[in-house]
Design a binder for these strands. Sequence first.
DNA 1: TCATATTGGTCAGGATATCTGACTACTAGG
DNA 2: CCTAGTAGTCAGATATCCTGACCAATATGA
Lengths: 145, 145
Amino acid sequence: MHQDGPNTGLLLFLPYRAMERRVLDAVHAAGFADVTPAQARVFQRIGPGGTRLTDLAEQALITKQSAGSLVDQLERAGYVERVPDPTDARARLVRLAPRGERVLPVATAAVAEVEREWVAHLGARRTGALREALLRLREITDPWA
Amino acid sequence: MHQDGPNTGLLLFLPYRAMERRVLDAVHAAGFADVTPAQARVFQRIGPGGTRLTDLAEQALITKQSAGSLVDQLERAGYVERVPDPTDARARLVRLAPRGERVLPVATAAVAEVEREWVAHLGARRTGALREALLRLREITDPWA
DNA sequence: TCATATTGGTCAGGATATCTGACTACTAGG
DNA sequence: CCTAGTAGTCAGATATCCTGACCAATATGA
């Protein structure tokens, strides 16, 4: 992998940031203009039945305090709500509120559109290889998995 | 590309952040403990003969003011210096100072080490495919290119 | 069972990172 | 020559994130 040209970190940075930008732009254009990049990073990691704050923090690679602050903001803006976690009296689950439920399809569609563009540019073979490689890289780069 | 499982943005985030973290840790361990993530993001984009502030900003996807501020910090810490740009009286080139020259091999070695681990995990074929795909994605995701 | 270590999440304070608006001087182009 | 555009700086404000501390619930081991 060590070759002339930009290093891998740089090469990963560009599409990552492009995707992030595009999705956030779509969300803003859809009327949810108050979502910040960091909030979105937490929001997108909320699982279907709700996710604990500490899990969100781990997944987003931020401290629990930062995650708590971002969830506060998302809650105040009506995107999420905190409900008791039935399995642990200390914990609460962060789950989508109705307003947040409305953001989800927008974001999902935006991701899909960008991915389609990437497939169009890369071709199906390279795209599949990219995804496969990234899934495998996740095995050694995801502290949460 | 649209498949069950994590979306591409998430998959790109993980290795990108892992690489960034690893390189910065190596730089810190080598005695350059005062380099911040944002500074490093600018630093690594300084080209061999020097790079204009505005180019650094474009490459790092930040405003020129942010880039200026980070270069100020790097300059004060002795990592870079500003010299006149011979081609434009308004401009200056940001280039590595002697202290910055000493950081370069540390960072380069750290990148190489992480890449070796990734090659070991992915295998040469998948690694090549990853790099190729990322290089191609850069064509449509790099606002600077 | 009980004591202790660990964990979930909140409070508090502070540092880092980034943005927008404005400005001046230089450069490019008509 | 004039005007639009650009490089980089100043200024002010917000976003993002961290560390330290704390309390209550849970897990663990003797």
